[in-house]
Design a protein around this nucleic acid. Structure first.
Length: 373
DNA sequence: ATTGCTGAAGGG
């Protein structure tokens, strides 16, 4: 489906905004907007509820020796978390923490692995839409681009096309989570299916720990996506978390591309309202099927395909547990002894406090145990 | 502004 869209590159003015890189806007390729597409019968999945009304400002007594230990969320100056933060946390929470504290370079071997995976993903993305560079100079611009992408993708999905890299965001237990869904499409049975592609260096199926993490990832995407289409995420809550300024003028490049996409907005606030209308009024169902596909990087051979059972309670429990670390209700936890093998490939095993605490006592340098047959 | 700030995922 190689549709040629307006391809355009706007180079970023190097005007002191080195902190902001260009953002990418998807080409608006489907302005015919076939809104008459039959709405697939959403086989009503388990209704997701977002707990945590939050909004309660905790007051710290100004009294004498009230010590306030800031939460990791505050210490790292994070207004929100990525879905993949929680997934890394699922792999090893302690490793995730070190990754935030010491974002050192990965080993080049690991870097190659990740880059190869990223380029395979990019190639797939380009199969369904073009990319357009948009100059941005503020976080409002960055979010506006994200919203414009959603506005272009929703109709595309509803006219039976697959969409890739769909942005999601949602409030869970008072914390904003942000992520990107790899792919969404309708199956021939009319079910809305989420597909997560995982590429692998070696032509072997994933082990249990890997699957557990990936299953959690897609389940969390569904949790957030469902809440979005059910109108549970509001502009007000998003603004609350991100501290976005809805009335701050958008940059010229963003405005230009909005116009080219047939969207007339002047402010971020107006754009946000459009997005929430689009999400809730487009007859989008909740996600019916979660699929993870493992593919060999070199040969593209499919190594494993998994249909993930969605257990809403388990997802909620896990998220609650992970967020308890972030909100300072508990300290970080490393892997259990059975998963000490993960330490072998961890960059932080030398300095790992969890290991020093003796909870894991398998040396990462220890040779693999030979299995006598 | 005194107090600032983030492409997400990439794979194991």
């Amino acid at each position: 489906m190689a549709e040629s869209g307006a391809e355009e590159t706007v180079s970023a003015e190097a005007s002191g905004f080195s902190d902001f890189s260009d953002s990418e806007l998807l080409g608006f390729l489907d302005l015919e907007s076939n809104q008459e597409s039959s709405s697939p019968l959403g086989t009503a999945g388990p209704s997701s509820q977002l707990p945590g009304k939050d909004g309660k400002d905790v007051r710290f007594p100004t009294g004498k020796r009230e010590l306030y230990i800031s939460s990791p969320l505050e210490r790292f100056h994070l207004k929100y978390l990525y879905v993949t933060d929680l997934c890394t946390q699922n792999w090893c929470e302690q490793q995730m923490v070190y990754g935030k504290e010491l974002p050192q370079l990965l080993s080049s071997e690991k870097e190659d692995l990740l880059n190869t995976g990223a380029s395979i993903h990019l190639a797939r993305e380009l199969e369904v839409h073009d990319l357009v560079n948009v100059s941005i100079t503020s976080k409002e611009d960055a979010w506006a681009v994200k919203f414009l992408n959603i506005l272009s993708m929703v109709p595309s999905l509803q006219s039976e096309r697959r969409i890739r890299e769909f942005p999601v965001f949602g409030e869970v237990n008072g914390v904003l989570l942000v992520g990107v869904i790899d792919e969404l499409h309708y199956t021939d049975k009319g079910e809305l299916e989420l597909l997560e592609l995982k590429t692998r260096r070696f032509p072997m199926p994933p082990r249990e720990a890997q699957k557990k993490k990936d299953f959690f990832q897609v389940s969390l995407y569904k949790y957030i996506f469902d809440a979005m289409v059910q109108g549970k995420m509001t502009a007000a809550r998003l603004i609350h978390h991100t501290k976005l300024h809805p009335e701050r003028p958008l940059g010229p490049s963003v405005l230009k591309h909005a116009q080219q996409g047939g969207i007339s907005v002047k402010s971020l606030g107006g754009l946000m309202e459009l997005v929430f209308l689009s999400l809730t009024m487009s007859d989008l169902p909740v996600i019916d099927r979660l699929k993870v596909e493992y593919v060999h990087q070199e040969t593209s051979a499919v190594l494993d395909t998994e249909i993930v059972p969605y257990e809403e309670k388990e997802v909620q429990e896990k998220v609650l547990h992970y967020l308890a670390y972030w909100t300072g209700q508990r300290g970080p936890k490393g892997v259990d002894i059975e998963e000490a093998w993960k330490c072998r490939t961890c960059n932080y095993s030398d300095i790992c406090e969890w290991r020093k605490s003796g909870r894991v006592h398998v040396s990462p340098l220890e040779p693999p145990t030979k299995k006598a047959k």
